[in-house]
């Protein structure tokens, strides 16, 4: 490829969009071939393929985001769309509403507590602990809470993504290990522990699990925004 053409590739939004779609498509093939094996996770595999391609092309993250930003933009409308599968599961929601709400509240609190306690166990510095506290909720909420607590929002954003990928990878194997067969149970736990990335993962398994993961993700975000400052104030005076 001539220098001019390569320059165009690096700076065109087209590259980021096409690369993301191709990486996702390839990750999907792997995921299907290995029957949804946890490590053949489409976000993890897709991101690895993109990163390797960026390195090969000499593109940096800002250049990639010129195009990938369009794909990321769709997270907004797709989050709104979570209302539809939830509506389709209205009957199940009505039957278990109190239990679900209580478990989401419990899970939200343990999301903050486990992050701070595990961080302390490994001797993490104070500001890292503050950045860890809101890591189990969707990125915009987590970054906002991190700022309020006095953490580093960019560091929190990284923790959020890693948390989501860990949750997406382990959700089904751990649920099976615990003998959980109910999609509502799987969905709520995944949405609480692994926000949108976990929700996207369980949508590949069942619409019901996805619906409840989406609900749990939204409620956990709300509860964490309200609870995290109180819990952190208590844990890290």
């Amino acid at each position: 490829m001539s220098g001019g053409a390569l320059e165009w590739v690096r700076h065109s939004p087209l590259s980021g969009v096409l690369l993301t779609l191709l990486a996702y498509r390839i990750a999907l093939i792997f995921s299907r071939r290995y029957h949804g094996h946890p490590l053949a996770n489409t976000v993890l595999l897709g991101a690895v393929i993109v990163v390797l391609t960026l390195l090969a092309l000499g593109m940096d993250f800002q250049q990639y985001m010129l195009g990938a930003g369009f794909i990321q933009f769709l997270l907004g409308p797709v989050t709104v769309a979570l209302a539809v599968p939830l509506y389709n599961n209205l009957g199940r929601l009505r039957r278990n509403a109190v239990t679900i709400l209580f478990c989401i509240l419990l899970g939200s609190a343990s999301g903050v507590l486990t992050a701070v306690l595990c961080g302390q166990l490994f001797g993490m510095p104070h500001q890292v602990l503050l950045s860890l506290a809101p890591r189990s909720v969707t990125t915009p909420i987590a970054m906002g809470v991190s700022e309020v607590l006095g953490g580093i929002p960019a560091l929190t954003a990284t923790f959020v993504i890693v948390t989501g990928i860990i949750g997406a990878v382990f959700a089904r194997p751990v649920a099976r290990l615990c003998g959980v067969k109910d999609d509502v149970v799987l969905g709520v736990a995944t949405g609480v522990a692994a926000h949108g990335i976990g929700t996207a993962r369980v949508f590949q398994l069942s619409e019901t699990a996805g619906a409840f993961a989406g609900l749990a993700m939204g409620m956990t975000g709300l509860f964490t925004a309200l609870l995290a400052p109180l819990l952190v104030h208590y844990l890290l005076p």
Partner: peptide, 14 residues
């Protein structure tokens, strides 16, 4: 919804 994972790839790259 089945392709929601696609939308998180840019964040993963981030």
């Amino acid at each position: 919804m089945t392709h929601m994972s696609l939308l998180f790839i840019p964040a993963g790259v981030g």
